[in-house]
Nucleic acid binder design. Sequence first.
RNA 1: UGGGGUGUGGCCAAGCGGUAAGGCAACGGCCUUUGGAGCCGUCAUCCCAGGUUCGAAUCCUGGCGCCCCAGCCA
Length: 568
Amino acid sequence: MTNEAEMQSNFIYQMILKDVEAGKHGGRVHTRFPPEPNGYLHIGHAKAALLNYNLARQFDGKFNLRFDDTNPIAEEEEYVESIIEDLRWLGVDWEDRLFFTSDYFETKFAFAKRLIEAGQAYVCDLSPDEIREYRGTLTEPGTPSPFRDRSVDENLALFERMQKGEFPDGARVLRAKIDMTSGNLNLRDPVLYRILHAEHHRTGDAWCIYPMYDFDHPFTDALEGITHSLCSIEYSDHRPLYDWVVENAVKLMPDVVKARSEQTEFARLNMSHMVLSKRKLRRLVEEGHVSGWDDPRMPTISGLRRRGVTPDAIADFQDRVGVARADSLVDLRMFLFSIRNDLEATALRKMVVLEPLKVVITNWPEGEVEWVELENIPRDESAGMRTAPFSGEVYIEREDFMEDPPKKFHRLSPGDEIRLKGAYAIHCHDVIKDDEGNVVELHCTYDPKTRSGNDTSGRKIRGVAHWVSAPHAVEVDVRLYDTLFVEQDPETVGEDLRDVLNPESLMTLTRVPAEPSISALTPGSRVQFMRKGYFFLDPEEDHGDGLIFNRIVPLKDTWAKIKKKQSQ
RNA sequence: UGGGGUGUGGCCAAGCGGUAAGGCAACGGCCUUUGGAGCCGUCAUCCCAGGUUCGAAUCCUGGCGCCCCAGCCA
């Protein structure tokens, strides 16, 4: 589905192409994906990871996975593992280049000292509150720290004492000496190192000072030889600082720097009916609105995986969405299209009746069973055929019968007929109701002349329904998932998630009849329940005595649309 | 005149001075033993106002809208 022309039209591809042609970075392309191990990856991260990975591949370059673990307070090993698992599942390949930014703490410390020696950095004793005050505001310039003009020797000594653990958290920081009057707040002497007496998931207690992102990231890019450092738009303001760090690294650490890395920003992914901020996703989990980070309704990679979405569908979706700098809110239906498009060609068809209505075929020979043939995937002969038992008692969907049908209802109603897929046409004669008037059973007759593939009736039968033979039915449980949010842009609708949560995001159906061949499915299979949707046999669930299917996405429902129009 | 970014159809998104790609959605039709899939068709003058030019979505000027930035988070 990846169209060359489409890929090449994105502005980053074109920029890199230009760079390569100009021989920049010696013609090399080296990208990276730098997640912070403080949460689970979601569909938005997949965009960034795939973009970086694909660009490297397209230019025959390299791709690194690098964990941005400069903040020991937030980061945990658990997240490292889940992120690696998710990226592998997505098909992203970093070969042997798995790095942690903490791998280079020693080199970074040395670089910081060079900066001090070059008069480019100083130790500042201001408290966090004071630093904020001195920084000024968006419209007023900042004022220089009283510690800004300390001597190199004093700075060096203090910085080393910081590193030795002589000061408590927050007592001092190392700051870059740039410009307290800049309109760009990031250049008002940004903090480079802070004191944090915290256990780091990789380095333990080896360090009590940790570099800040703005210092660490550009330097690490340069160390790893990253040529094109892609990040999201909110870092645009940081680019001058990124360049400052890289330039200084080139100047002061020429022996270890492998590239004059450059940052390019692109817009992050937003999708309708979804919330993608780490904070809100966390709240969904913590407030119990979902069963966990991998709840099939979550936009996390692990959630999508459990839902049954394939990596191919995600990649196809990213290709279709493209990459640009403008803010956007992608319609969920675009994602649903990629999911259906992917499954349409590969999912075996099964018949499962989600809301059963019993049909007794009154003229069917007592006790007789006929095994009918059905295509596994229409128009794909290589997928082969299967058989399903047909008998005198079958289930059909309740919604495939209406006592008093509206126009265009090409299904079953009293006095009318419908074809049972792959079997016979049945004609409805009697409607059996309970005391409250609910339809509980239909009495129909079948027409032997309408046998599928061999219809000699001469009649044109409009409607086709799926069905399951009652005595042969295998009972399965089904989870029907819908969007977590009813709002198209829940991200902007305030804080109380309950106001926008979809109360019907999960509907569980228990022990619904399915055709017997469904038992042969292996966990992790994706199938189409004919006329209903694509479903995933959840391998994570304990099946116990029965199968549990997650609905990945429903099929398009043209009848629902017609019905809606009729009611308007 | 704090700094940065961005504005092309309902939603994404090409376009790079030569007369608006493509996808999703929608709508109409064909086809169909999944009202699925498939096929055919319909659907924009490019935030606004000036200007430059034979010619502007593309260049210039001036507006307007929206997003981001005042963590010792990333």
